[in-house]
Design a binder for these strands. Structure first.
Length: 387
DNA sequence: CGTGCATCATAAACCACACTAGTTG
DNA sequence: CACAACTAGTGTGGTTTATGATGCA
């Protein structure tokens, strides 16, 4: 693991050969601003890109976690590391196992913030630079914000991180990525899929990726044939538009299902649902989900075999406030104690015979009792009083 | 400072079966 | 339409097991 899970790998303790911030010249840089062509530390980045709306729209990417000197181009899901093209090639050409690491293009950081938000594993990961300084309200705000991001930041001490992280290999949706999603967000109320159907978000998806062909030769990967007359980028744009349209259609059905069964509707329908939910979601729904992201035809890079990346639009302050209020209200009312839906079942469970805590067949218990009584009768067991 | 070990805390799994909801005749 | 019979799935709790976190040598 190359990356600090919670900090996104930039905790200020970078190696000493990392590039320093072009602005303050004192701190290790963490992001590269494409618009300004500058390397910035988290603090300077937050300060400069929060100055105005235009600046907040500057696309920034993380600096390579390996060399710390170049903009990251790919995110290695296996290593959970952001790497530049050069380091990616070096690291993932080391051995056959490394070559099979699934890597995805780094998505730019957008928006101004006191938090830096990045797309990570097609989801969101956020970190706050001075978490220790946060007040309770700020933490609450932060938590609420994490909900608004639809894919909360990973808690470092989560005992399920590894499992969750592994599960992410199949999770291309930004929703339900790491945590069990409950009804604290009624996503349908905020437009659901249609909210992301605007051209802006589509355009945001269509980033320009320079893809070194050597880096993405998965099991079924065939290098791009330039002679096919269609550039990779152009193909990707068309692919995304098509799948986006398909997502919308299938998504409506999926949302109807979720609404009917009490699950929050999804914005991205390339979802990975918690283990509990998976057993409930019918196979048809799952197949629809998978079908919504058909494999690209042969002759295209595995890099884009995943579903389109969907980025939420900027919330207006009122929307955000409304969401935070809703979140707080539900948070205040939520109950953690176990609720018994069927008292009769509880009674039966409590009276049911057990063997080492597990429910046991009554016949087994009867046989055990019979054996015990037989042995007692035979005088082979002493000092045991049957209950 | 890194490693190995022990200890502690927490979550998940396991089990049988009464019950519920849906389907069929 | 009402009813019975049937089927599949759900929920229940105590204990064990697995796993991660932490502290220490």
């Amino acid at each position: 693991m190359l990356k600090n899970e919670n900090s996104g790998g930039f905790d200020g303790s970078s190696n000493n050969w990392s590039r320093v911030c072009d602005s303050c010249r004192s701190t290790t840089c963490t992001v590269y601003c494409r618009a300004d062509s500058t390397f910035l530390c988290a603090g300077c980045d937050a300060r400069m890109h929060a100055a105005n709306l235009l600046a907040s729209r500057h696309e920034r990417v993380w600096v390579c976690e390996a060399c710390g000197r170049a903009p990251a181009t790919f995110l290695c899901k296996a290593d959970a590391a952001s790497l530049c093209a050069s380091c990616d090639a070096d690291i993932h050409s080391a051995n056959p196992l490394a070559r099979r690491h699934h890597r995805v293009p780094i998505m730019p950081i957008l928006g101004s913030h006191t938090k830096i938000i990045l797309l990570h594993d097609y989801g969101f990961l956020s970190f706050t630079q001075n978490a220790d300084d946060m007040t309770v309200d700020e933490e609450d705000e932060d938590e609420a914000a994490s909900w608004l991001l639809l894919n909360p930041p990973v808690k470092k001490n989560s005992t399920n991180f590894d499992n969750d992280h592994n599960n992410q290999n199949n999770n291309y949706g930004m929703l339900f990525g790491r945590e069990v999603v409950d009804d604290y967000l009624d996503l349908t109320e905020y437009g659901g899929v249609s909210q992301f159907n605007d051209q802006n978000s589509v355009n945001q998806q269509q980033q320009h990726y320079s893809v070194p062909q050597k880096s993405y030769r998965g099991d079924s990967v065939v290098p791009v044939q330039e002679g096919q007359g269609k550039s990779l980028i152009l193909y990707r744009q068309q692919q995304q538009q098509q799948s986006h349209h398909l997502n919308f259609q299938l998504g409506m059905e999926y949302d109807n299902y979720n609404t009917r069964y009490g699950y929050p509707a999804t914005m991205s329908h390339s979802v990975s649902i918690s283990s509990m939910d998976v057993s409930v979601v019918p196979e048809s729904a799952l197949s629809e989900t998978s079908n919504s992201h058909p494999r690209p035809p042969k002759g295209n890079i595995d890099l884009f075999s995943g579903p389109p990346i969907q980025i939420p639009p900027q919330l207006t302050p009122m929307d955000r406030e409304a969401r935070v209020l809703r979140y707080r209200e539900k948070k205040k009312n939520r109950k953690f104690e176990k609720t018994i839906r069927y008292a009769s079942r509880k009674v039966y469970a409590e009276t049911r015979p057990r063997i080492k805590g597990r429910f046991a067949k009554r016949t087994d218990v009867a046989e055990a009792d019979q054996m015990l009584s037989t042995q007692l009768m035979a005088g082979r067991i002493y000092g045991i009083v049957p209950s």
